[in-house]
Nucleic acid binder design. Structure first.
Length: 414
DNA sequence: TCTGGGGTCCTAGGACCC
DNA sequence: TCTGGGGTCCTAGGACCC
């Protein structure tokens, strides 16, 4: 890995992405306070326009809460396929400037432009070209950070929003970091901030000067990394498409429209979640040995999770369902259930070997046919008899963190 | 009038084997 | 008969990111 001073990294953050896409798609929404929400009954604000943010609307708020803060708020149910499509096309623009593009999420990417500087002149030129093209083609604005590594590039793109450009050179790195609050660092959350503040560490300058031993004593192996972050050191490479590490788990959870205590209904949702997990695992060509069940109760605060590790790897929906059910059967539910989650982990790439027995083979062929039909006509067109029609609401195409603008991980878009 | 959903990584303790 | 240590796997829970 080249030393930091030899790399030039861009971090590009599409401002208020989902809300901005909606405002572009519908001119009536432009310059107005709008919020994008999920399609389910108990949803929260996913993203809001800057006009809404100025009125106190924040991501994660309940809809009623946001409307209390901003009565004129226009609420739009999100269309994730639209956002994924837009993001894919924007990432194509990025790749006109370097092949080394890493999508951090649907609206954030890193670009290593080290080897493109001789072609385009400078990182600032590239940043301006990208901004102009995204605005021209999509009407969207973005904030860009330019720095010697990913950590500082992301820090930079957060400094000026919307439509910002912030440059951190190796020379002025120390000056910028000295007064920078530690919570600006990607990786320092609320708890970590509080713990560091308790140690009288408030700024990156103070964090970088702190003795490593003090940090490792308090935070374990993260301690060393924290000191480096305070010093602005980050040697992690930009990992382009196709070279990412294999995914480690596949899961779905769902807050139910109403709290339920009826066991038959709970099992029905469990089967539905198992089918969602199974079909995605099969699309990824992975199978897993460990099934995890998560339950949140009606009071919101109490919850539990239990896992079971099997003798063999599975990815058929009813195998996942049976494992999840075996966990549920060991528990006496204390309250009505608010949320159910099923996750498959301990993954490996799937064998292509066909089962030995005819019945098993027939089952596999049936599952594959079902996956094919669902892939063509939309999830849930063909499903298990116990999944009552109408239970599965449309419009919820998930965007997992492993989402990529192209390639096998670009899932749930048919 | 309530508070989403998708992940990753780390830690700690227990079981088990050599 | 008692004692110790290292390694691996599993489970549960928490912090963090978008």
């Amino acid at each position: 890995m080249a030393p930091d001073s030899h790399r030039t990294i861009l971090h590009i953050d599409l401002n208020a992405f989902f809300a901005s896409v909606e405002q572009q798609a519908n001119p009536e929404l432009r310059d107005k306070p709008i919020a994008v929400i999920g399609g389910h009954g108990r949803t929260v604000i996913t993203t809001s326009s800057y006009q809404a943010r100025a009125r106190g609307v924040k991501t994660g708020m309940a809809v009623w809460e946001a409307k209390r803060a901003c009565p004129e708020l226009i609420v739009v149910v999100g269309d994730n396929r639209k956002y994924q499509h837009t993001s894919s096309r924007i990432n194509e623009i990025f790749r006109d400037y370097t092949p080394d593009v890493e999508a951090f999420s649907i609206d954030e990417s890193w670009l290593d432009v080290t080897h493109s500087l001789s072609i385009f002149g400078s990182a600032v030129t590239i940043a301006h070209l990208i901004k102009a093209r995204i605005l021209h083609s999509f009407g969207l604005r973005c904030s860009i950070g330019v720095a010697p590594n990913k950590l500082l590039a992301k820090l930079g793109s957060d400094q000026i929003k919307p439509d910002g450009l912030f440059i951190i050179t190796p020379e002025d790195m120390a000056r910028i970091l000295e007064p920078m609050p530690i919570q600006e660092l990607c990786g320092v959350g609320k708890k970590m901030q509080r713990a560091l503040n308790m140690m009288s560490i408030y700024t990156c300058g103070e964090l970088g000067r702190c003795e490593e031993q003090r940090l490792t004593h308090k935070f374990g192996i993260i301690g060393r990394r924290l000191k480096e972050m305070g010093q602005g050191i980050d040697l992690s490479p930009v990992v382009p498409y196709g070279l990412e590490e294999d995914i480690k788990s596949v899961g779905h959870s769902r807050t139910l429209e109403k709290d339920i205590s009826n066991l038959a209904e709970i099992k029905c949702f469990l089967l539905q979640l198992s089918e969602m997990v199974g079909s995605r695992a099969r699309r990824y060509c992975v199978s897993g040995k460990t099934v995890h069940l998560y339950v949140r109760y009606a009071d919101f605060f109490s919850s539990w999770g239990k896992q079971i590790t099997l003798c063999n790897h599975i990815n058929l929906s009813d195998d996942i369902y049976r494992a999840a059910l075996s966990i549920l059967n060991t528990v006496e539910l204390e309250q009505p259930v608010r949320l159910l989650g099923v996750t498959l982990s301990n993954l490996k790439q799937q064998d292509e070997q066909l089962p030995l027995f005819v019945e098993e083979r027939k089952k596999l062929y049936a599952i594959r046919a079902m996956d094919t039909v669902n892939a063509r006509y939309g999830r849930g067109v063909v499903t298990f008899g116990t999944l009552v029609p109408g239970k599965e609401k449309g419009g919820s195409y998930v965007i997992p963190p492993s989402w990529r603008p192209d390639g096998v991980k670009n899932i749930d878009v048919q």
